[in-house]
Amino acid sequence: MLFAPDTVESLDFVVALVNTSPGASRSGEDELATVEQLAALLTRYTYTGRIDHDEAELNEVRETRTLLRSVWGLERDEAVEVVNRMLREANALPFLARHDELDWHMHATSPDAPLAERMRAEIALALTDVIRMNEMSRLRICEADDCDGLVLDLSRNGSKRFCTVRCGNRMNMIAFRERKASA
């Protein structure tokens, strides 16, 4: 699946962000419970502009995480409504930017806008690409029995089923044991 690099980066960030929530995280705990955990996440995914490093910002990002989790499994027409609302609420005015080591990419809000608002706007732009290309089926929930992790399937044949190799291995082992027991 071929999306623009900034689209892929935004979608990868959604997966990383949502997969910090209980039920989706490796630990099973909320891995975005502190300002320090948010700061650690932001070291892996670059967000330029205003970052407050406070509890209010953390709470807004956690609300964004919940919203993004709900968008991931929607049908195309339902996703359009949510994405349009995200863009409206952010007063998004898309523009091209180039900074740091990044080539031309899209931003939709002022660098002074709150972090969670910038996240929602930029992720909404990425989701518009997914919607326009009719590729919502690439945004899935992990098929492992006890996992709610997000899966971004960028494979050529669209066959990715699990959020991590760990979930895939675990489910394969369960299937192997079931086959062995029934033989």
Rank of each mutant, 00 (worst) to 15 (best):
E178C: 05
E81P: 00
T34H: 08
N134R: 12
M171I: 15
T46I: 05
T128K: 11
L154T: 09
F162Y: 15
A90E: 07
M133C: 06
P22I: 00
D146T: 13
L152R: 00
L2T: 04
R166Q: 12
H105C: 02
N157T: 11
L87D: 01
E75F: 10
L139K: 04
A144D: 07
R177A: 05
N134Q: 08
S10T: 00
N172A: 15
T34P: 05
T109K: 10
T164V: 02
D103Q: 10
A97D: 04
A144F: 11
D54Q: 08
P22T: 06
E63H: 11
N59L: 15
R62Q: 14
T46E: 06
C167W: 04
A183K: 09
Y45F: 15
A56P: 00
D54N: 15
A108G: 15
F3P: 05
F162R: 01
P5R: 07
L42W: 07
E178P: 00
I141T: 12
D153I: 01
A92C: 10
W72S: 04
D77K: 12
M136N: 00
G28I: 03
L125D: 01
A97V: 02
R170T: 04
E135S: 13
I51L: 12
H53L: 08
L68N: 03
R50S: 01
D145R: 13
I141W: 04
E29V: 01
A126C: 09
D153T: 05
L42E: 07
H53P: 00
R140Q: 15
M119G: 06
M171H: 02
D54A: 09
E63F: 04
I123G: 05
S10H: 07
L93V: 14
A181S: 15
E31L: 11
D54K: 01
C147D: 01
L154S: 07
E78M: 11
R179I: 10
D145N: 12
T34Y: 12
L154I: 13
C167G: 02
N59V: 08
T46C: 04
L154K: 13
S70A: 09
I174C: 01
P111G: 03
E60L: 13
Q37W: 06
V83G: 08
G23F: 09
L41K: 03
A40E: 11
V130P: 06
P5W: 07
A56K: 09
D77F: 05
M1T: 10
R88W: 11
D129P: 06
A92M: 04
L67V: 07
L67C: 06
N84I: 03
L154V: 11
V82H: 02
P94E: 00
L150M: 10
H53W: 05
M173S: 13
L74N: 04
T164Q: 01
D12E: 14
A90I: 09
A124F: 11
V83L: 02
R85L: 11
R44K: 06
Q37F: 13
M1S: 13
R179K: 15
V14L: 07
N157I: 01
I123F: 12
L102K: 02
Y45L: 06
E143V: 09
L2V: 09
C147Y: 10
A92D: 00
I131A: 11
